[in-house]
Design a protein around this nucleic acid. Structure first.
Lengths: 236, 236
DNA sequence: GTATGGAATTTGTATAGTTGTATAGGATCA
DNA sequence: TGATCCTATACAACTATACAAATTCCATAC
């Protein structure tokens, strides 16, 4: 369940909040009872954390009165990590730098349902990796109905771009019907491709694109490396 | 014969008893010591069985407290128009909220920037857990500017609802300015509150809500248990 | 105004119980 | 031989509960 100690994390959290100015020097912390409720742990676990902080001179407790912040706390270092931002409109449609798989095969039940075709109908499958600055950002898999788009695989291999290929096949105008986002743990193969560790969190986006008449033209799934991407939903 | 391993039989026996309603969802199993005495095996053999059940999501253990039956995991589709309570009631479950922290304190740099106030200005902090049928679905933290909303904490403690409290404070009409979504691994405290394992994937949503004149009224962060929710972005 | 007394609050301490982890070793089977 | 299963022991981490000791707060008396 917990690979690292709970009380350490609680001490770190309180320390960070002191550093951020949530509790001014000389100010009082919430009571042990309140803290234990907030963190969802026993009061003794909070006491362990407070005792550690007291030993390091950050706080001091007065029986019957409370726990107080001792002196001026050091600046809490705010992580300035570089993050990649990606518009949600690009989810599932990211132009690929690396196509790893292009094939045509019968649709399975899920794919058929999403594309509103019969199970077993032919679909094109395109898989790849998108990168930025040489770092893999996302894996994607797009499923296209083969019936209305017979030439898609050839055009994709020629142009290297999914969007350009769709346009060349007469589907210039398509809109996103819906996007569903959830969090998943990386499986070994995915972790390898994204250069993250197995079990690291990923953002999985599932989208269906429809043409002008509301017919599905693409069923796309994208797995983003969780720590490298923030999806921004404009207005939503 | 006894071809099958002991721990498997123990797991199967406990699983059957759970299914029979002998131990209700959220209820506590006998202690490992009691179980090892009952089955006449070493405590570690019982632990092996319990670990297997935990890996399959049937039970979850809390150090020092016991092993508890996990409620059935369900997926809740959340969207721009579909709020938490609606999604849960639509799934035939009863939503509930547990407020773990309500306090007023100076804003730190990040909070001030998001709410477009000065660092050090007073803000209200509300934290809690959203649950469906007693099973935790999400952790949330909302930051409100204290200036325009002086009575918010009192109203929230009275009503227990954030949206209702906002309405009572004269902010009936607010919209989401932006939402940023990323995947995060659960830290120990978060894992404890969501009853998932440390490192399990979570969906973190950061949103700013503004009133009719575009003034920020809420800066909210929500951590969803990754395997229990799907965010749906309509239209995209 | 100021002191007093008592209730409520808050930290300190003690004890026992429960799960998590580490180490070591025996038994069985392919 | 090596892997899996099971036993045995010890200790660490956390929970649960109860009570003691110090402080704060407030109504009341003077």
């Amino acid at each position: 369940m917990a690979r690292s100690a709970l009380w350490r994390e609680i001490a770190a959290a309180l320390e960070a909040e002191i550093g951020r100015g949530h509790f001014p020097p000389g100010g009082r912390l919430p009571t042990e009872a309140e803290l234990s409720a907030r963190f969802g742990v026993n009061r003794h676990t909070v006491r362990h954390a407070l005792a550690d902080m007291a030993a390091r001179g950050l706080v001091h407790a007065r029986r019957g009165a409370g726990v107080f912040v001792t002196g001026r706390a050091a600046e809490y270092p705010l992580g300035r990590r570089v993050r990649f931002h990606q518009a949600v409109t690009a989810a599932g449609m990211t132009p690929s730098r690396n196509l790893t798989r292009i094939e045509t095969r019968p649709a399975d039940a899920e794919e058929a349902a999403q594309l509103r075709i019969a199970a077993g109908d032919a679909v094109h499958v395109v898989e790849g990796v998108s990168m930025a600055d040489g770092q893999p950002i996302a894996l994607f898999r797009s499923i296209f109905p083969a019936g209305p788009l017979p030439d898609l695989p050839r055009v994709i291999t020629e142009t290297g771009s999914v969007t350009a290929a769709l346009a060349a096949c007469g589907v210039a105008d398509y809109t996103r019907e819906s996007t569903r986002i959830t969090a998943k743990a990386a499986k070994p193969v995915q972790a390898l491709a994204l250069r993250i560790r197995e079990g690291d969190p990923m953002l999985r986006s599932v989208a269906v694109n429809v043409d002008g008449e509301g017919r599905p033209v693409e069923y796309g799934i994208t797995w983003f490396a969780g720590d490298r991407v923030t999806l921004t939903v404009a207005g939503g």
